[in-house]
Nucleic acid binder design. Sequence first.
DNA 1: ATGGTCGACTCTCGA
Length: 261
Amino acid sequence: MKSIQIATFNVNSIRSRLRVLEQWLHKNPVDLLALQETKVIDDLFPVDFFYDHGFQIIYRGEKAYNGVAVATRFEPIKIYFGFQDGEDPLADTRLILIQTSQFFLLNSYIPQGKSIDHLDYQYKIRFFQRIHNWLKKDFTSQDPLIWVGDMNVAPTAIDVANPEEKKNHVCFHEDVRNIYHNTVNWGLIDLFRQFNSQPGQYSFWDYRERNSFRLNIGWRLDHILCTPSLSKLAVDCYIDKEPRGWEKPSDHTPVVARFQF
DNA sequence: ATGGTCGACTCTCGA
């Protein structure tokens, strides 16, 4: 038996979050860390930070927006960026799939969508549809697949503060929740919900909401999903709120899963 | 209340 820890963290700029990451990794020596919103072009990505912490680092970014990375102690056999259908090159800075000897890991930064009447919201809906199609085409629910990231969806009413006020929000609207659930129901389990049933467990608090963290006015948008063969090996999944108390925190906080392989 | 988001970037957008 080998204990494995993986985590997902929307850092909201990798370069602005190195001190937080340094502290967090010191206390949480995870085996794989999936990052979103790195907000930096590849030439300026702080690769040495990850080498110094014993990781291989896989990353794809752009100027100012988006950007994803996977820091891993597992040897990746294959690495893919974006959708494999070649129809949406913009997704290269939102999706990384890695294959290791023990599992596949998909790291995603799902488009936020701006507003339900904005074209970006239609793009978000199509983005989930494309992931769903990809899962159906290239995987079965018997495969060892982990899908993590900032999904920009609060799956149910217990995953957002004041849900009755959020019905027209792009992260809680019924259409996006339906397509999210359809995609997940392809064969994935929400690992956080396998271990926690309480409402009000959030991974994101809007900077613009006054005292949102202190008052716990937040959203659970960051998820770790996996197929049943892996969920059976999971021993815990939790949201680590500690970094929100540190200097210069991200608006998101890490979600961690532990497995016994 | 002498004020109340943050990050990247060129001044405004995205979240």
